[in-house]
């Protein structure tokens, strides 16, 4: 089995304690997994908790070193694999993510918040101070950034796993791939491909239901169309998404300009293709 190799000296974490030395006789060091939370709802971490059956199978093979949702026990870094949930919304977070990067050999972001800025990226289009005044009794205590940005805007990210929330099967796939040094099977094609692989009847063509499937990144397994609903774009834009080309058809299926603005202004509004379409209507 491919074990996690030690980080190359060039990438070795500077501020972390060195990993225990391996002697010829000792058992191989267990790969250490850490989970970090930034601005988010915890839903993606819960997908990981939901993997308990799969994780039990590897209980002896990986060490869960830092996962607050599951256990308060914390093992110091460096970590072989860090899963990062949430977006950067405060000056403190912007510093903390640098530290996470330094102590992580591989850093994988999970979910729409970490990969696109999340629903909270709607602040990028508004006046944050006005929000703060409206929501908090003592706005002076609030130290926040004007924007919500994905992790990749701050540090190098080795892999992005999309979704709001992420798909548990895809998470297990990414963990397996990283543990065994292979490429994750997480294609960046449209949700339509997943519909067709499942044998779904297209809800847009056959029912006239507005559906974001053609512009949306696969990964959910086409859940909504499988239950006779249009896709809401939870996984963000597919590669080279073309929402402008879909626009007349969303209109034909009953969405007016305001509705189009709203459907593109959700969890992935911070990603370029959806942001452009959101702003084009408004």
């Amino acid at each position: 089995m491919a074990r996690a190799r030690k980080a190359s000296p060039k990438k070795a974490p500077r501020r972390a304690k060195p990993a225990p030395k391996r002697t010829a006789a000792s058992a191989p060091r267990l790969p250490k997994l850490a989970v970090w939370k930034f601005a988010s709802c915890d839903g993606c971490q819960l997908s990981l908790l939901d993997c308990e059956d799969e994780l039990l199978a590897v209980a002896g093979k990986i060490q869960i070193a830092n996962f607050m949702e599951a256990t308060r026990a914390v093992v110091d870094g460096p970590y072989d694999l860090s899963l990062v949930e949430g977006s950067i919304t405060t000056p403190h977070d912007a510093e903390r993510i640098q530290e996470v990067r330094r102590t992580s050999k591989f850093l994988v972001t999970i979910g729409a918040c970490a990969t696109a800025g999340g629903i909270q990226a709607l602040r990028n289009f508004a006046d944050v101070e006005e929000f703060t005044r409206a929501v908090y009794a003592t706005p002076a205590y609030i130290s926040t950034l004007k924007t919500s940005t994905p992790i990749a805007a701050h540090v190098r990210v080795d892999y992005e796993l999309r979704g709001c929330p992420i798909n548990k099967a895809q998470l297990v796939e990414v963990l397996s791939a990283f543990l065994h040094r292979r490429r994750p099977n997480v294609p960046d094609q449209s949700v339509c491909v997943e519909c067709k692989l499942r044998g779904n009847v297209c809800v847009a063509v056959a029912h006239g239901t507005p559906c974001l499937g053609p512009v949306t990144h696969a990964g959910c397994g086409a859940i909504c169309p499988s239950f006779d609903r249009g896709c809401y774009g939870c996984y963000g834009p597919k590669e080279r998404a073309n929402p402008a080309g879909l626009r007349p058809w969303l209109g034909r299926h009953g969405l007016d300009a305001g509705a189009v603005r709203r459907v593109f202004g959700t969890f992935n509004v911070g990603s370029d293709a959806f942001k452009q379409e959101h702003e084009a209507h408004g």
Partner: peptide, 13 residues
Amino acid sequence: ASRCQTCANCTLV
């Protein structure tokens, strides 16, 4: 190409 979604539906059907 300005209309095409590169969604692959045509090829799959």
